Amino acid sequence: MIHHLHRDEEILSAYPIMRQLRTHLEEEEYKALVREAMEVDRYHLVAYSMNGAIVSVVGFKPMTTLYYGRFVWVCDLVTDEMHRSKGLGEILLSYVEDWARQHAFTSVALSSGLSRHGAHDFYEEQMGYDRVSYVFKRVFN
């Protein structure tokens, strides 16, 4: 079952899964960032549940840039390690693609860590995504 997470308790219920991807985030910081992203950036947090337990999560937001035009950016996509390779990532990413089409967005884009070769194979080979750029980051101390 796919469902949007809005309330604090729903957002927190996805934390154990999201923590498998965003290992640097403690629970309260995670909740605060999700809340801010929802309020400021139109971030959507969507979960896939089995037997009442969340097993996969996707976070995405609609965006407009000169490079991509109107598109949806996938910020987070993670499936519980005990449930990987069962098609759940495909289900949620397909959900995001359908959401984007229904809301008149022209594409879906995401970034993936350099060392996540399995994820790259999934995006390119299974989902048909093209590798179009590198993402660069500078942290301020």
Rank of each mutant, 00 (worst) to 15 (best):
S115I: 13
S56V: 04
I54Y: 02
Y43V: 03
L25N: 09
Y30W: 03
Y129C: 04
R42V: 08
E81N: 15
E27H: 01
D80T: 04
Q126W: 00
D76K: 01
E10K: 02
L21R: 08
E9S: 02
L88C: 10
G113W: 14
L12Q: 01
E10P: 00
Y123T: 06
G113I: 08
N141G: 15
E10F: 01
R70S: 03
A100F: 02
E39K: 01
E26V: 07
S94D: 11
Q102S: 04
Q102L: 09
K61L: 10
H103V: 00
Y134Q: 09
K137T: 06
S115W: 07
R131D: 09
S107T: 05
E29H: 01
M18Q: 12
L110W: 07
Y15R: 02
P62I: 12
Q20C: 08
S115R: 14
K86V: 05
Y123Q: 05
V55K: 06
Q126Y: 06
C75Q: 09
S115D: 07
M63C: 05
D76S: 11
E124M: 11
I17K: 02
L45Y: 05
Y95L: 06
V72D: 01
Y134R: 11
S112P: 09
Q20P: 13
H24Y: 12
M38C: 06
M1T: 01
Y129H: 06
G89F: 14
I2H: 03
L77I: 13
K137S: 08
V78E: 10
L12N: 00
Y15E: 02
L93F: 12
Y129A: 01
G52T: 07
F60Y: 12
R70I: 03
H103N: 11
G89Y: 04
Q20M: 14
Y15I: 06
V40I: 05
E125V: 12
R70K: 11
